[in-house]
Amino acid sequence: MAGKFELYTDPSGVHRFRLKTSNGTVVITSDPHESKEQCMKSIESIRKLAPYAQVQESASAPA
């Protein structure tokens, strides 16, 4: 089974999404969105851009 995007409204009333792996591990949690439509646009952006995203390794973890 593939991963899934899970849409939800957080306790402060803003829309967010999580991307979960097939075993339920959360790999992405979105920034807050004012509307469900904005949230869906962010999901579509990730779907379109992720195949072209580069992997960049850094020497150390950010401070």
Results as ranks from 00 to 15, higher is better:
residue 59 A to C: 08
residue 30 S to H: 04
residue 46 I to G: 01
residue 54 Q to G: 07
residue 57 E to Y: 05
residue 23 N to Y: 14
residue 18 R to G: 11
residue 22 S to K: 11
residue 4 K to I: 06
residue 7 L to V: 04
residue 30 S to D: 04
residue 32 P to L: 03
residue 49 L to Q: 10
residue 5 F to I: 09
residue 34 E to L: 15
residue 28 I to P: 00
residue 2 A to N: 10
residue 37 E to A: 08
residue 49 L to Y: 14
residue 19 L to Y: 02
residue 23 N to A: 10
residue 5 F to S: 01
residue 12 S to T: 15
residue 53 A to F: 11
residue 36 K to I: 09
residue 9 T to P: 01
residue 1 M to K: 13
residue 43 I to R: 02
residue 35 S to Y: 11
residue 1 M to V: 09
residue 20 K to D: 02
residue 23 N to T: 12
residue 44 E to L: 13
residue 16 R to F: 00
residue 21 T to H: 01
residue 42 S to T: 09
residue 39 C to D: 02
residue 7 L to S: 05
residue 9 T to I: 09
residue 14 V to Q: 15
residue 2 A to R: 13
residue 60 S to Y: 12
residue 8 Y to M: 04
residue 59 A to G: 11
residue 44 E to S: 14
residue 36 K to N: 02
residue 25 T to R: 07
residue 38 Q to S: 14
residue 28 I to R: 08
residue 13 G to S: 08
residue 27 V to H: 06
residue 6 E to T: 14
residue 26 V to I: 14
residue 19 L to H: 03
residue 28 I to M: 07
residue 25 T to C: 06
residue 40 M to C: 08
residue 12 S to H: 13
residue 26 V to P: 08
residue 41 K to E: 15
residue 3 G to W: 02
residue 32 P to G: 08
residue 34 E to M: 14
residue 58 S to Q: 05
residue 57 E to R: 15
residue 33 H to D: 11
residue 55 V to F: 04
residue 21 T to C: 01
residue 59 A to R: 10
residue 26 V to F: 06
residue 52 Y to C: 03
residue 5 F to W: 04
residue 28 I to Q: 05
residue 21 T to S: 04
residue 43 I to E: 02
residue 12 S to W: 10
residue 50 A to G: 10
residue 2 A to P: 10
residue 13 G to R: 10
residue 13 G to N: 14
residue 24 G to V: 03
residue 3 G to C: 03
residue 22 S to T: 09
residue 59 A to Q: 12
residue 33 H to S: 13
residue 53 A to N: 09
residue 27 V to G: 05
residue 17 F to E: 00
residue 50 A to F: 08
residue 13 G to P: 05
residue 7 L to C: 03
residue 51 P to S: 10
residue 39 C to L: 05
residue 16 R to E: 01
residue 11 P to C: 06
